[in-house]
């Protein structure tokens, strides 16, 4: 059972690495092409970096391909994109939550956005009690306010909603 899990994890990791390396290879090649159009003084350090980088990425793709079956890897990538690989699905969920946090901060402002997102993470995702879910975000926001605004005099983002009601042009 443990062996099966380990094998499955290795297959998933190989597939993820291959997918990542292919994306990295495409981006690196694009950077290489872009660098050709730059002034020589500006592109010289880029070539010093890009030439060995492209070679190393290709070597690593070759090494990974030797360990992984291409068809299996493709199936794993498809399964991951379909939400069937648990760890990948949880990671994507976390990333979406972080993006949502960013949107909350943009609209509601730093403190309100953080408190809202923290409440969601603690209460809905973490399944903690209502008391804990309310207490932790409020205490954290107060601590951050004291530290940043009072101690370091750093004003955090007030949010578009506030700016709109304060008469700023936000669009």
């Amino acid at each position: 059972m443990a062996n099966n899990l380990e094998t499955e994890s290795a297959v998933n990791r190989n597939a993820l690495e291959l997918a990542t390396l292919f994306i990295a290879a495409v981006l690196t090649l694009a950077a290489f092409i872009a660098a050709i159009s730059y002034d020589f003084s500006s592109s010289r350090p880029l070539f010093v970096i890009l030439v060995p980088l492209v070679v190393l990425i290709l070597v690593q793709i070759y090494r990974t391909m030797k360990q992984a079956n291409a068809e299996t890897s493709l199936n794993v990538v498809k399964a991951a994109l379909g939400g069937k690989v648990l760890d990948f699905a949880v990671s994507v969920k976390f990333f979406i939550l972080l993006l949502a946090l960013l949107v909350c901060i943009y609209i509601l402002g730093h403190y309100a956005g953080l408190m809202f997102a923290m409440f969601y993470l603690i209460r809905v995702h973490g399944g903690e009690s209502m008391k804990m879910s309310l207490m932790v975000p409020i205490i954290t926001a107060l601590a951050l306010f004291a530290l940043f605004e009072l101690v370091f005099s750093i004003e955090l983002f007030q949010g578009q909603l506030y700016r709109y009601f304060a008469g700023y042009r936000i669009w």
Binding site: A117, G126, E128, V136, T140
Partner: peptide, 9 residues
Amino acid sequence: SIMVPILIA
């Protein structure tokens, strides 16, 4: 579940 939101903030 409590640590992650605090650290993220």
